[in-house]
């Protein structure tokens, strides 16, 4: 039972962390290598909110807004000149990640910070005591997934974004403002990354490099998932599940490379990942 819960909740955490990256990659075909830095920014939003004595829950909207505003600036000044050079965009955003990391260090220092858990304690699940927060993370992942599905399928903005993904030329012909759609998409992606950073804080300590550890994993999952949230959920369950199983039964260290290695093999066999099926 506990293993099952571990698999499901770990996948949920991975899903939360990867959504921001997928949003940007799915619509803009750009890998935001500063994604880790946004997770860190989210984490420090949680730290700052707690330090000023506000409710830790307030960190969620704060991080979304801070992440989103940073995203608008990034899209405008760094990403926009690089849409035609996707590999350079990876590098430039990586450089931005360094800058953000150093700025955070200058402001908060390099020490590890801790935030109080949003939901402490355990809950009894079919006779197993299990971390309440991890279960909340599962709920959060489902809410995020459904919320995003609604945004994409149910709103005009989502329709426009999908139109840009499918056929950008035609979208332009119909008079859609593709530049604005790109900016908004980037903003939502980075806002979600900030949000994810807050949600991570009860699970990990906060330090200026906390995001980097999550970057490669989410990158691999997004590459495998392609462009849809459904396939991302599948990828998180399969690869994240494999990670938990390997970590539990073989070795935690091998567990650490499970996602990367499986992703590399999946992409070798099926270059478009799960989105082809």
């Amino acid at each position: 039972m506990s293993l099952f819960l571990d698999v499901v909740t770990s996948s949920a955490v991975l899903f939360i962390v990867a959504t921001g990256l997928l949003t940007i990659f799915g619509v803009l075909k750009i890998i935001n290598f500063a994604h880790g830095a946004w997770l860190t920014v989210g984490g420090y939003c949680a730290v700052a909110t707690t330090q000023t004595g506000l409710s830790p829950w307030l960190a969620l909207p704060v991080a979304f807004v801070v992440g989103g505003v940073l995203g608008i600036l990034t899209e405008r000044f760094i990403v926009r000149p690089l849409y035609a050079r996707p590999l350079d965009a990876i590098l430039a955003t990586w450089g931005l990640g360094i800058v953000i990391g150093q700025l955070i260090t200058l402001i908060f220092g390099r020490d590890v910070q801790f935030t109080p858990s949003l939901i402490p304690g355990t809950v009894d699940v079919f006779g197993t005591a299990y971390s309440a927060y991890r279960l909340f993370a599962l709920l959060a992942a489902v809410v995020l997934g459904l919320g995003f599905a609604f945004l994409m399928e149910g709103t005009r903005l989502g329709l426009s974004a999908r139109a840009v993904i499918m056929n950008e030329t035609l979208a332009r012909i119909l008079g859609l403002d593709t530049a604005k759609i790109r900016t908004v998409t980037f903003m939502i992606g980075t806002g979600l990354a900030g949000l994810a950073g807050v949600l991570l804080t009860p699970l990990t300590s906060v330090d200026p490099n906390m995001g980097v550890a999550w970057l490669v994993g989410s990158f691999m999952l997004v590459m495998v998932a392609g462009e849809s949230f459904g396939t991302l959920a599948v990828a998180c369950l399969l690869l994240g599940g494999a990670q938990v199983v390997v970590s539990t039964y073989v070795s935690p260290i091998l567990g650490g490379i499970t996602i990367a290695v499986l992703a590399a093999l999946i992409l070798r066999l099926s270059p478009k990942g799960f989105s082809r099926a």
Binding site: L159, R162, A163, M166, N167, T169, L170, R172, I173, L174, G175, L176, D177
Partner: peptide, 24 residues
């Protein structure tokens, strides 16, 4: 001026290549 400016001025264009969002 770009396509959006023309659409805003009442122009519509039916292209020949990939004229529809097939999956929509």
């Amino acid at each position: 001026r770009g396509p959006k400016a023309l659409v805003d001025r009442g122009v519509a264009y039916a292209p020949q290549e990939q004229p529809l969002f097939q999956d929509l």
